[in-house]
Simulated assay, not measured.
Amino acid sequence: MSVHSNWRWRAVAGPLLAGALLAGSLSGCAEPAPDLDSAAAGQLQSQVHAVTEAAATEDSAGALKLLDELGYGLDAAAAEGKVSFKRHQSIKTSLDAVRADLTARVAQQQAAAAEAAKAAAAVQAEAAAAQAAADQAAADQAARAAPAPAPVPAPGNSGENGKAKGKAKGGG
């Protein structure tokens, strides 16, 4: 190694090493509060698992409800000092992102259900129209196939040029 490159290495490494040693010595002076208590972490993790399971089974509405419960649990743990503010904010940001995804999925599912209902109604209307057309065609065919009724003479016309029959002549 040349003297010049050795000097550059010492110029960079020296302050970095000093900073690392200073940080290490300060961390030994006082034990900082954990970012996340282990008991709280276990409970939050089981709630995350429940949300994941609900989302995986396409139960987005149920997953949203479980996500709300997870948020309440996180807030309670933070209020008890089991979650640091920084960690609380980080987890909240993640929960908000998941909530947005689940809300979008619920909206898509509702739109798909409405579209399916609309399509089912259209199919049902087409079937009803086809049945009505078939009924009308059957009625028309039955009317053509039936023999025409015999003509009924008009009332008051007996076919004798208007002369009445009876005992009116000499009758006695």
Rank of each mutant, 00 (worst) to 15 (best):
V3T: 15
W7N: 08
W9Q: 06
R10K: 15
G14L: 13
A18M: 13
A20Y: 00
A23E: 01
L26V: 12
G28D: 08
C29A: 11
C29P: 01
C29F: 11
A30H: 07
E31P: 05
E31H: 12
P32D: 03
A33W: 02
A33C: 05
A33K: 08
A33T: 04
L36G: 03
L36Y: 00
A39D: 06
A41E: 15
L44C: 05
L44W: 00
L44A: 09
L44H: 00
Q45L: 10
S46T: 13
V48N: 08
V51I: 09
E58N: 06
E58T: 05
S60N: 15
S60Y: 15
A63P: 00
L64N: 11
D68P: 01
L70A: 08
L70K: 05
G73S: 11
A78S: 06
V83F: 00
V83Q: 00
S84C: 01
K86A: 15
K86P: 03
H88P: 00
H88D: 11
K92R: 15
S94D: 14
S94I: 09
A97Y: 08
V98S: 12
A100D: 06
D101F: 01
L102G: 04
R105P: 02
A107H: 05
A111V: 03
A114P: 01
A116H: 04
A116C: 09
A119T: 03
A122K: 07
Q124P: 02
E126M: 07
E126K: 07
E126G: 08
A128L: 09
Q131E: 14
A132N: 05
D135P: 03
D135A: 15
Q136N: 07
A138L: 14
A139D: 04
Q141W: 13
Q141T: 06
A143H: 03
R144S: 13
A145L: 12
A145R: 11
A146R: 11
A150T: 08
P151E: 12
V152G: 02
P153Q: 13
A154W: 10
A154T: 11
P155G: 03
S158E: 14
G159L: 04
N161H: 12
N161S: 12
K165I: 13
K167S: 14
K169N: 13
G171R: 08
